[in-house]
Design a protein around this nucleic acid. Structure first.
Length: 463
RNA sequence: GGCGACGUGGCCGAGUGGUUAGGCACGGGUCUGCAAAACCCGGUACACCGGUUCGAUUCCGGUCGUCGCCUCCA
């Protein structure tokens, strides 16, 4: 039995899907207004693991992750760079795609864009007006929060308490400060589409209501996003979708914790961000992915270079083991334990703990000359499900060993040069010329190649 | 102020009413010409104060502190 923490009820609940054997999940993707940062990566990885795990558990998973490419912030950012909204959104969208690839995040089954669903957005807006839940005002359309009794059920906000702190901004035409825009009339020079209320564009929130229902239908299983989206974004999605239909929008609401920098939230608005692509470019995504997965997806985590270094060390331990022992038929008991911990709200820290336990057991067996292939097989499966597998972008270029080769009179290049150097060192060791042997080893180490002498010969690893 | 989460050993981070989390770092050892890797051994950790209990880090109450949301946000 899988149990998940549902923000809606604030407790762990048994996971029962709408359609037996199938999971529909909708993950709030980015608003493509600026470069992806480490916080975006965490959200993507959190739901990627959930998706991979549910798939591994035998569910047929349909994963939808949207791109919000029409939004005030994008327009503002585009005005600054002198681009069109479309051009900026496309450029940033490509950057997000690159970052997701670098983190080993699987492509969603469907990746809908807000800009491609304007007719459906207009339709939903009209239906909300028809039901008395929305009203047009001077080219804008607003959702009438007071008309929906259940408003606040996800976030726990109470409209009457909220109202005190809110005010209507200049240029808005709301009847109630709590009301939010479904459609915004375009100002001169702004991107716009025609609508029954004049030229304009969608408000934020409504595109998710439209796209989630279009591709997954009402009452789909998992709606995910960061905790910072609970209010107002997800609250308003529920208001729109459930208000117009009376049906349940999503069964389980899952939210990932924030990434902090020195204890405080990483956020676009404050400029406290670490650029995701710079990190990925520097050392590849797996270490960062492991850093994310060391903590439970709901907990806030801190990001720092030191923590990333640690994660990288830990990752190396896992990979070294799989390099050492060829995986065979996975050990069934180990997979059963993996299933147990992951069934409990996707407890990746415990899954990793298990993986490290298995690595120790496996190394012990291998040291004793016994068969560890079953354990290695289980480790391989666990890492696959966590997305820490081998299916990654090509590793970095081999370090340049040419200077080392030249110094020791080796004429070949690349891997062949390394192998030749190893042979040269073997001979030196056999003749007990350890000074030369150690010189070769330390020269290679400086170039980025570590040598390890084992009973069955010397091996090299990037280091 | 309202709502929510959380305070665990040098650092990160799980978990449990009484018995080993795990990783990283550190010290000792085995192996090795040396090293690396691997393995073994090593630290009376659960913010504070009360309460419930035979027994609490784990449950309850309070105190202090940290963080998130409260119409930008993953």
């Amino acid at each position: 039995m899988i149990r998940v923490y549902n923000t809606l009820t604030r407790q762990l609940e048994e996971f029962v899907t709408r359609d037996p054997g199938k999971v529909g999940m909708y993950v709030c993707g980015p608003t493509v207004q600026s470069e992806p940062h480490v916080g975006h990566g965490r959200a993507a990885v959190a739901f990627d693991v959930i998706r991979r795990y549910l798939t591994w558990r035998g569910y047929e998973v349909t994963c939808v992750r949207n791109v919000t490419d029409v939004e005030d912030k994008i327009i503002a950012a585009a005005n600054e760079t002198g681009e069109s909204m479309e051009a900026l959104a496309a450029r940033m969208g490509a950057r997000f795609a690159e970052a997701y690839r670098g983190l080993g995040v699987l492509d969603p089954d469907i990746e809908p864009k807000a800009s491609e669903h304007i007719p459906e957005i207009i339709d939903l807006t009209q239906r909300l007006i028809d039901r008395g839940l929305a009203y047009a005002a001077d080219g804008d359309v607003y959702f009438r929060v007071s008309a929906l009794e259940s408003y606040g059920k996800l976030s726990g906000v109470r409209p009457e308490e909220l109202r005190a702190g809110y005010r209507i901004e200049v240029g808005e035409h709301k009847l109630d400060p709590l009301d939010f825009a479904l459609w915004k009339g375009a100002k001169p020079g702004e991107p716009h589409w025609d609508s029954p209320w004049g030229a304009g564009r969608p408000g934020w929130h409504i595109e998710c209501s439209v796209m989630a229902e279009k591709y997954l239908g009402m009452g789909f299983d998992i709606h995910g996003g960061g905790t910072d989206l609970i209010f107002p974004h997800h609250e308003n999605e529920i208001a729109q979708s459930e208000g117009v239909s009376g049906a349940t929008f999503a069964r389980y609401w899952l939210h990932n914790g924030m990434v902090n920098l020195a204890g405080e939230k990483m956020s676009k608005s404050t400029g406290r961000v670490v650029d995701l692509l710079i990190i990925l470019g520097g050392r590849g995504g797996q270490a960062l992915r492991l850093l994310y997965l060391r903590a439970h997806y709901r907990s806030p985590i801190d990001y720092s270079e030191e923590l990333l270094d640690e994660a990288e060390e830990a990752l190396t331990r896992l990979h070294r083991f799989l390099e050492r022992v060829t995986p065979g038929e996975p050990d069934a008991a180990a997979l059963e334990r993996f299933r147990e911990v992951m069934d409990e709200d996707f407890a990746t820290p415990e899954a990793l703990s298990l993986a490290f336990d298995l690595v120790r057991d496996g190394n012990r067996l291998a040291d004793a000359g016994e068969d560890a292939s079953g354990i290695a097989g289980a480790v391989r499966v666990i890492l696959d499900v966590l997305g820490l597998d081998d299916a990654w972008p090509a590793p970095d270029e081999l370090p340049d060993v040419a200077p080392v080769a030249e110094r020791f009179g080796v004429t070949s290049a690349g891997v062949a040069a390394i192998e030749e150097l190893i042979e040269k060192r073997r001979v030196a060791r056999a003749e007990r010329r350890f000074d030369e042997a150690d010189a070769i080893r330390s020269a290679l180490a400086e170039a980025g190649i570590q040598l390890e002498d084992r009973p069955d010969g010397t091996r090299w690893v990037r280091g």
